[in-house]
Design a protein around this nucleic acid. Sequence first.
DNA 1: TGATTTTTGAGGTGCGCACATCAATTGTTG
DNA 2: CAACAATTGATGTGCGCACCTCAAAAATCA
Lengths: 340, 340
Amino acid sequence: MRPTAKDLAEAAGLSLATVDRVLNDRPNVSEKAVRKVNEAIERIGFIRNPAAVSLARNKSYRFRFILPTTGDLYLAELIQRVEEAQALMKGDLVDIDVVQISVDDPHRVAKYLSEIDEDIFDGIALMAPESPQVRDAIGRLIERGIKFVQFLSGQEKLPTADFVGVDNFAAGATAAKIIGRFVGGKPGKVLVVAETMQSLDSIQRRFGFDNTINRQFPHLQCLPSIETHGDERRAAQVVSRILERNQDIVSIYVLSAEARIPLEGAAAFTDLRPLTVVVHERTPFSENGLRDDRIDAVIAQDPGHAVRSAIRIMRARADAREPYAAQDKIRIEVLLKENL
Amino acid sequence: MRPTAKDLAEAAGLSLATVDRVLNDRPNVSEKAVRKVNEAIERIGFIRNPAAVSLARNKSYRFRFILPTTGDLYLAELIQRVEEAQALMKGDLVDIDVVQISVDDPHRVAKYLSEIDEDIFDGIALMAPESPQVRDAIGRLIERGIKFVQFLSGQEKLPTADFVGVDNFAAGATAAKIIGRFVGGKPGKVLVVAETMQSLDSIQRRFGFDNTINRQFPHLQCLPSIETHGDERRAAQVVSRILERNQDIVSIYVLSAEARIPLEGAAAFTDLRPLTVVVHERTPFSENGLRDDRIDAVIAQDPGHAVRSAIRIMRARADAREPYAAQDKIRIEVLLKENL
DNA sequence: TGATTTTTGAGGTGCGCACATCAATTGTTG
DNA sequence: CAACAATTGATGTGCGCACCTCAAAAATCA
């Protein structure tokens, strides 16, 4: 039989009340008592029954995901995963919700964060681009005891907050390696398309990308980034025009999540198949692209995994536990037609 | 406030006792009562508090992983992951252990399975090659109420058991795609090395591999599989000799998990860097190989993920719940130097 | 020393549910 | 109708722990 708190009290030579004080960090306990209890815990291998703890505390957790309002298929995917997790965790006293706010204005984001009630929310996962205001607001949030996760995006990593997402330098480098090896020894140019180069994510990916191309594939030349700003029609025109004018382009790298915007239109004008096309994130568009060979590889971070990871981290922090790092690391996946 | 069983009884217009009978499938309940309770569950959104259930049942789960005795680095990795999970789940009334048995003799495996006490174990995860005897033994195990997971290996998928692992056809195809694209248009031969071609896994991978090479890269020619049978010295000799004799070999594909055995020795004789080398499973050896460019890509299935997945599935089955498929699917990962 | 503070003990309650017992109420059958 | 079976209700206990109160003991101080 598994030792209970009562057994622990006996083993420590103390009363249940004192053991309870030690276990739950209550005041008025002597150091000696703490030592005795901890020693006994080790000795008899006591582990608190989490079910009993949860029941007795009868506390539920409230976490909120804050996502951007604008975004394409990947954002939709993400929201769906949150909603799935929501349904899945409902039983375990974990309430999750999603709100979407306009994240382009740092002041608005900061204001939103400052208005979050710490009596209501135990944890916040935010997906928003880098900015000093937001960073400060996050700091204040954390000081108020709200557990915070930087979610899949942007902030310069805060040492005090947890981060869920991939290393974007490595993601860019991975894309570069795939393109370099897929193109072969043939010299040529690589077209790089982004939604915007303002965001930290884009900058990091581009940096990692250029770095690997220049070092390992010097016969390839990276063109300056084209920015779509989410404008589908304009993007299609620009991409097509550049492709026509530069017949020596051998590859396209879309480093933002919404590969559909620059590619769907362009595919109507130009046959993308001869080009090596690498994009980010698995979406219905990129999946179909892989299937019919218009896209050669997708660099992805699993949104479901990311969401569950963020939730696990917030839960662990709310219980003052360390998150389990190995499980919560998000991998940079390489998707081909064959391993979809 | 979240509705409790008491609220449910009230909403259903029945007593708590009857509600309990319905919730736990006890005998002597009228169909009308069942209907009323289910309707009320929907109406008030009742969800059993899992913590309370767990506490009241006060049942702990015992699961066992049965792994082969022989194996190289990947097996070691796997065992370590199980032990991690063991420590991690200890709190949640889940006891896990690992045993290693000689899986080459189907009769022994079948005998081992038949001797498992269903009063002690709630679930078994087995990693063993395909054979009719074992399949039958699994069937009997399941009939005795033990939840069973085919773990990372070999049985023709039983419709009655769960499977954790990747699609080996796809894994082989993925390796083929990587090799085909990495080699470029250059014609040449591909050396395929396996520990043994007896196992279903090897056969499937080889099939997927050949299929993709022949269709998409007809300028590459796959050589017959070389089998190492785990013999490091002999493997090194054979591989080196073949490489010397066939100067037109452009690529090596190691389709078993222990890439170290055929490659480590061969690397001493021959410089592998000009060749495109693709192996399976992330191990210290394959990681190092990626880092110093002796290996170009690793096709992997995350052992930690696999172990946790198997445990989640066994738990879910033990509670007569459906496992959460999306989370428990193992992905075919493509690892490059850049996304390690 | 007595007065005060700190630390400990004893005991109770409740979290939401599973499981068991026994009595009371229905429905069924001849 | 009585005799029986099937169904329901009422009630209690316990799972392991958190959290609370009040009293007793021990340590500290003046």
